[in-house]
């Protein structure tokens, strides 16, 4: 059975003065099996984040619905956690890293057990010993690791990632991508990632859904077909990788399809 279904999702905003509503997105339909790593690729401003927020129950769709395990999403579903692009705005600056990770479970388990588990989560993202540091004492990449540890502490079945690596430097991005792949494989998560970064989508995903410009809908869905485990260097040099990159860049830059 499909784990995650997007059924003709659409979003539009009413305009003032009786003008027709601004259509951001329409008829987005996708089926994601359990354990898949799906990337949604699109140019800036095509409503990728809005799509992800509808799946996360943070925004209500104007039409259609998203279903997780057959249940329609209405409000944030317990199976899913949203990983924000803006780690510096989603972490609490008055809490140290341990308490920021405890954020994920403290309201269910209580503060103490949540804290006790937090150090282990930090170790899993390579931040062992940073429990007492505050987010503003860490680099951007390390802050995003804290945010990842927090998301994982909630033990989600579905991880929703909103351009999570776009605000860190290029080297850190590559390291974090490998970290996410590790965690995904180990925990058998289902991941939905939205990104405008073609290489990131190819490197990480099993399938890539390409969004068209506004009103966006899914233009095509591509099987990546690169072997796993993927390697930060070798995978990026594989002929299939380069072929996909060529095709996708052509599409996004709206040149003639190769």
């Amino acid at each position: 059975m499909a784990f995650l279904e997007l059924d003709a999702l659409g979003k539009f905003y009413p305009q003032p003065g009786g003008a027709p509503p601004a259509r951001i997105m329409e008829r987005v339909s996708l089926t994601v099996p359990e354990g898949e790593f799906l990337a949604v690729l699109g140019p800036s401003g095509c409503g990728k984040s809005t799509l992800l927020q509808m799946v996360a129950g943070l925004t209500t769709p104007s039409e259609g619905e998203a279903r997780i395990n057959g249940r329609a999403v209405a409000g944030p579903p317990p199976e899913a956690v949203y990983l924000f692009q803006q780690y510096n705005r989603s972490l609490l600056p008055w809490r140290n890293c341990r308490d920021n990770v405890a954020f994920a479970t403290e309201h269910r388990l209580g503060r103490k057990p949540a804290r006790a588990a937090a150090d282990e989560q930090l170790a899993q993202v390579g931040l062992a010993g940073f429990g007492d540091h505050y987010p503003w004492q860490l680099s951007g990449g390390m802050q995003q690791r804290v945010a990842i540890a927090r998301a994982l502490a909630a033990e989600p079945a579905l991880l929703l990632m909103d351009e999570p690596f776009s605000a860190v430097d290029a080297l850190t991005r590559i390291q974090l991508q490998s970290l996410i792949l590790d965690i995904w494989a180990r925990r058998k998560l289902t991941v939905m990632l939205v990104t405008h970064d073609v290489e990131e989508a190819i490197f990480l995903a099993d399938r890539i859904a390409v969004l068209t410009p506004r009103p966006s809908t899914i233009g095509e869905v591509i099987e990546v077909g690169l072997p796993r485990p993927r390697d930060a260097i070798a995978t990026r040099e594989a002929p299939r990788f380069l072929e996909l990159r060529h095709h996708l860049l052509n599409r996004l830059l709206a040149r003639d399809a190769a």
Binding site: G57, P76, A80, Y82, S90, L92, R108
Partner: peptide, 27 residues
């Protein structure tokens, strides 16, 4: 209070009381 921060509370399933006390008031 930053909307992203509030969304972080929602996606992790924080209730209103917990969000008030541990996020909105400190922020």
């Amino acid at each position: 209070v930053d909307r992203v921060m509030l969304d972080a509370a929602r996606t992790h399933g924080w209730g209103l009381g917990h969000t008030l006390w541990h996020m909105i008031l400190p922020a």
